[in-house]
Design a protein around this nucleic acid. Structure first.
Lengths: 114, 114
DNA sequence: ATCATTAATCAACTTTTTTTGATTAAGTTC
DNA sequence: GAACTTAATCAAAAAAAGTTGATTAATGAT
């Protein structure tokens, strides 16, 4: 019966779609599942664009460690990077954060929240 | 100067508050930072309240493994548990999910989304 | 060209998380 | 109460994530 096959196929498609989706969100949620990275995001929110060197004292973190965490946030598309010569400037990706977190939470990562 | 001390104290309070907040969210985000657990949440969403035994075939997962992941979601307050005799029934905690995730994401964890 | 600066990457190590199979505890059924 | 069912917990092993210090690559300054 043709329609049975069609239904089964639809279900398989749906499953594959969800699996992909969950994988994507796993990466994003892993990125925010660390208080140090949440702190980085918060510092970038309140200070705007910052170089790794600027972040080091604010986070009290060694350079290689900071680079490691920044890469995770960048791979999850939660922050943006702009290279200028030998400097790397990072900033929050508000758009991406808004699509991921609840409104009340986003407030924490919105510039100049009062 | 008294006002300097006051300002410094306020800042320290703010810092302590944020640190606590980030720790709380670390736990919640860790819980959703796993595709298997996202899948569990989704199954609970579409099927309503389920026992561990019901979930096993749906997740194709051994009992002890399932209990492990359910505990993580429960500790993060993202699911609810009701014990009836020797059965444990788990269900999604919509309220908590709504406060954590973006609206578009919550749709995935809202019963009967069309 | 040499030296200094900035930040990414690497490799070894540590810590945390996840998986697995077995055991335990508590409640049913006969 | 003996046997069975359900699900939590445990301990050992495996896998993944995070930390550390050193190296590298690329750019800038002298």
């Amino acid at each position: 019966m043709k329609w049975v096959k069609n239904v089964v196929n639809k279900m398989k498609e749906q499953e594959a779609y969800l699996e992909q989706l969950f994988e994507k969100y796993e990466i994003k949620f892993k990125a925010v599942a660390d208080k140090q990275r949440l702190q980085i995001m918060h510092v970038l929110t309140t200070n705007g664009s910052m170089s790794v060197g600027d972040l080091m004292p604010k986070m009290d973190m060694a350079q290689s460690k900071l680079s490691y965490h920044l890469k995770i946030l960048l791979d999850a598309d939660l922050i943006l990077k702009e290279t200028q010569g030998t400097w790397s400037y990072y900033s929050i990706n508000i758009n991406s954060v808004n699509h991921l977190l609840s409104e009340e939470l986003c407030c924490l990562f919105r510039p100049a929240n009062k």
